[in-house]
Design a protein around this nucleic acid. Sequence first.
DNA 1: CGTGAGTTTGACCATATGGTCAAATCAAGA
DNA 2: TCTTGATTTGACCATATGGTCAAACTCACG
Lengths: 202, 202
Amino acid sequence: MPKDRAPTRIQKKNRAAILDAALNVFSAHGFRGATVDQIAAEAGLSKPNLLYYFPSKNAIHTALLSGLLDVWLAPLHDLDADGDPMEEMLSYIGRKLQMSRELPRESRLFANELVQGAPRIHDALSNDLKALVDEKTAVLTGWMDQGKIARLHPYHLIFSVWALTQHYADFDIQVRAILGDEDPFEGAAPFLDTLYRKLLTP
Amino acid sequence: MPKDRAPTRIQKKNRAAILDAALNVFSAHGFRGATVDQIAAEAGLSKPNLLYYFPSKNAIHTALLSGLLDVWLAPLHDLDADGDPMEEMLSYIGRKLQMSRELPRESRLFANELVQGAPRIHDALSNDLKALVDEKTAVLTGWMDQGKIARLHPYHLIFSVWALTQHYADFDIQVRAILGDEDPFEGAAPFLDTLYRKLLTP
DNA sequence: CGTGAGTTTGACCATATGGTCAAATCAAGA
DNA sequence: TCTTGATTTGACCATATGGTCAAACTCACG
């Protein structure tokens, strides 16, 4: 394995290629369903070569998850307590829907992990995620107290955003089987806009 | 394998035990992550004994999925075009949420399959599911035309029900990591009731 | 009981898969 | 160019896993 120095040009390139390939494979087949050979092939490396950069399949998966958790939570993180409540919420929902559209692999990576009991990120959920959600639900509750948005259970309100937006990435196949040629996001954006305007108006 | 006669007492018992065990294992680990040994152990049978009742791992999975698809779609199937629109929708949502509460394994079984591109039930989606959804969205559109419920994209309205209800079964771990001791369904039921009342009121 | 169908299993096989290793090759600075 | 560390690989290993099979055992019924 590479020493603990500054990464070389080749190291940067290969590590990135591996993580990108791993994202493809893990998100499409889950941890157990993914094979190291498959990831190596997709990254254009031999298996031993891949294992020269990451010590194990598990290490790749862990690196992926922890590297992407921040990206995944960024939209919620950006919810601004000082902004206009309704606008902030609608823009949060818009950012989240955009992520489902542009980063479906990441969404499915987490979906796979969560559906199977999150064996590898349970800690991150109870710590980082819980902390972020608690911080933001406090903001929501504040807005409700001020009568700026309708009073609702703040946790379930957050859940609803996650469910409604990630559904389009995670269950893409089902959505497309029903919509046919129609672009899912074309209809989803105005639908969610309407939904949350009605829901949040006091 | 057993002949094509009426199933014996033992056949009934073992087939049922296998399918129940398989539901446990497949829903928790996905198709690839489940092993025949694991299912056999959970069913209290030896592996060759299990394979005496089902010819392969795939056959068990297929039997499970097709056997449960009807159960899974029953709530939507029961949506009555002749009932009161708002009541019908709220009761559909209630039934669906109830299913997430009582049949989380079934929900995760389908979630696992869908997230990974539904390789084994793609046909059922484009045929049976699509047909049922088309039938029911026609009912919804009718209600919208009559001004009984708000005009919304009917497909996305259905998707929203699926997303919001199944989220509590599929991502149970995440929901509980955030809610702590609070029972998810305790809060979800009134939340969804409020949400859809606001959304569907014309 | 006796008997034949139904049921169960230990032993086994072929393949897939995560991972190792020593040897070969390559790249970049002195 | 030479040297040294970084990179790459073919060959290999141990284990896991889906599946098979012939032999043994059980059960229901005449």
